[in-house]
Design a binder for these strands. Structure first.
Lengths: 138, 138
DNA sequence: ATCTGTGCAAATAGTTTGCATCCTC
DNA sequence: GAGGATGCAAACTATTTGCACAGAT
């Protein structure tokens, strides 16, 4: 079952109704590889901005989507499927966003989570620098 | 030499002039333990909001201050002294921000930085969950 | 004396909300 | 047919910019 189908089902079970805007947002998120801002979605979809934000909020609350804050002006949103857990590399120059995953990093975070007094249930890691194309050849 | 003195000096050397707003922002950042939002500073200082933002921008560009984006509405700013490198725990419920540091985590990040094609020069880690006081005993 | 820092107010950008209408169940 | 979903426009919040003036060098 695709993530999009899973998402539709979970929303239905949560008592939400289906509509055109929601369907479009879910389909788009289902095919994107990495985070997308709400405004980017607005540009690409034939749906009202408000409906996009409302759908994203529902998806986030059900744990279907993760909001990722890489420091730009707009927040990014990406689907959250357990097997695809990853973090982000951000180019300071062009803003390029690239995903990466690393087991050692996850282990270190788990260790910290167990040692702190906080009840940790999530984490974000962002590495910043220059992407290959912005590394000046001069 | 305190961080505040060092910051003033570096700004002077960069050609900026000293003024009341800048001094206040630097003094406040010098005494705070963790990140503070620009609006919080505005509330606490007798300085114009615009000047606060302008000072923060200068400080950030000189590497004296780090902007930290923990996902709330406003961005946080905290002084950046090499010996005090740390990351953040954020309470989902009350927004409490707590710093932590971990050598294993840093090692894992260094390893990733060396292995990627990006030229990595910085990173942020945010752990999310519930702080001790928000962990409901009921 | 010059030229930058400051602070007010207006402008912007992202996000949220109010409300009339459309569509799903 | 009832009630939630949608989309427009207005409201809001954080941040930036324009400009006149005060203050630092």
């Amino acid at each position: 079952m695709t993530w999009a189908q899973h998402a539709e089902e979970k929303l239905d079970r949560a008592g939400y109704r289906s509509g055109g805007a929601r369907r479009q947002v879910i389909e788009l998120l289902g095919t994107e590889r990495c985070a997308l801002s709400a405004l980017e979605m607005d540009r690409r979809l034939a749906a009202g901005r408000a409906s996009i934000y409302r759908t994203l909020e529902q998806l986030e609350q059900l744990g279907l989507v993760q909001r990722v804050d890489v420091g730009g002006e707009a927040a990014g949103y990406e689907r959250l499927d357990p097997s695809g857990h990853h973090h982000h590399l951000v180019c300071r120059q062009c803003g390029l966003l690239a995903p990466f995953a690393d087991p050692d990093l996850e282990r270190a975070i788990e260790a910290i989570s167990g040692a702190t007094e906080f009840e940790v249930d999530g984490h974000d890691v962002v590495l910043r620098g220059r992407c290959p194309s912005c590394q000046d050849p001069s």
